[in-house]
């Protein structure tokens, strides 16, 4: 088949290069347990929060009375003083923390295993790596958001909690979830910046991602409440695109300017 080995060097187009990188990353994602563990964690956390808090509280003073509380708050429902409440902290925005762990492990293993040598030997354009990792991280994050909501709904059903949406509609909830997914376009590239900076140092990468992520968690809460509308969707889409591109450019710059090891 390939033993003629003629000295032909066809430069692959950007699309072809990116396609091959994305294929590798998805193959790796689905052939290692990391992705499945993170999906499981995303689904089990809201279920645990709902069932365990309910079991340890008096019936008249329950933290969670409605299943949507563990997903997200309605805009203006939380006062500034209540930001550290369990109900405020234990919601879908936790997924942005899980994604930080996943992206850090995914990239740091590229370095610690030495697999990056194989990647960068045949892929001199570092932007391919950054875009591919961003897409894979984004889709993983989206799956985690869906898993979280499904976990919360199933646990709520089992616990017998109310599903009443109050002033929000099911379309608002849908807009909220899509907005959260758009926000992944900020968080994933941000974590990639931290991960390529710390290379194989996994713990520094995770801590650094948390530290960087904290700056953006309030944005995730404020810009995509449970009663999100078209404005929230557009804001998250545009914000995600702009910051995602900016962080992607920063990661590419780091990779271009620094030695791999």
């Amino acid at each position: 088949m390939q033993n003629s080995n003629k000295l032909k060097f066809e430069s692959p187009s950007f699309g072809k290069r990116l396609k091959s990188m994305i294929k590798v990353d998805f193959y790796r994602l689905f052939h290692t347990p990391l992705f499945y563990i993170m999906i499981f964690v995303s689904a089990i956390i809201p279920a645990l929060v709902l069932t365990m808090t309910g079991a340890n509280e008096a019936a008249d003073a329950q933290t969670f009375t409605n299943v949507w509380q563990v997903v997200e708050a309605i805009s203006g429902a939380n006062s500034g003083a209540g930001l550290m409440d369990l109900a405020t902290m234990c919601n879908i925005n936790m997924v942005f923390i899980f994604v930080a762990i996943m992206v850090s492990i995914f990239i740091s293993h590229d370095y610690s295993s030495g697999y990056n040598k194989s990647i960068f030997t045949v892929h001199p354009k570092k932007v391919d790596y950054v875009i591919s990792k961003s897409i894979v991280g984004f889709i993983s994050g989206a799956c985690m958001i869906v898993a979280y909501v499904l976990g919360a709904l199933v646990a709520g059903l089992i616990s017998g909690l109310s599903f009443a949406l109050g002033s929000a509609t099911i379309l608002n909830v849908f807009a909220c979830l899509v907005s959260k997914i758009f926000l992944m376009a900020i968080f994933v590239p941000l974590y990639i910046v931290v991960a390529v900076f710390f290379k194989q140092k996994l713990w520094l990468s995770i801590i650094g991602s948390f530290a960087a992520g904290i700056l953006f968690y309030p944005i995730a809460m404020m810009t995509a409440p449970l009663n999100s509308g078209i404005f929230n969707l557009v804001m998250c889409l545009v914000g995600g695109a702009i910051l995602g591109v900016a962080f992607g450019a920063l990661s590419t710059l780091i990779l271009n300017k620094r030695d791999l090891y």
Partner: peptide, 28 residues
């Protein structure tokens, strides 16, 4: 490499390397 700049994607796609140790995932 082969008369082209070493960052050319076409040339680099035809480079195979074993540097220090194989870049493989140990658990795979």
């Amino acid at each position: 490499l082969f008369g082209k700049d070493y960052t050319d994607p076409g040339v680099r796609a035809r480079v195979g390397a074993l540097i220090e140790n194989p870049g493989c995932f140990p658990n795979s």
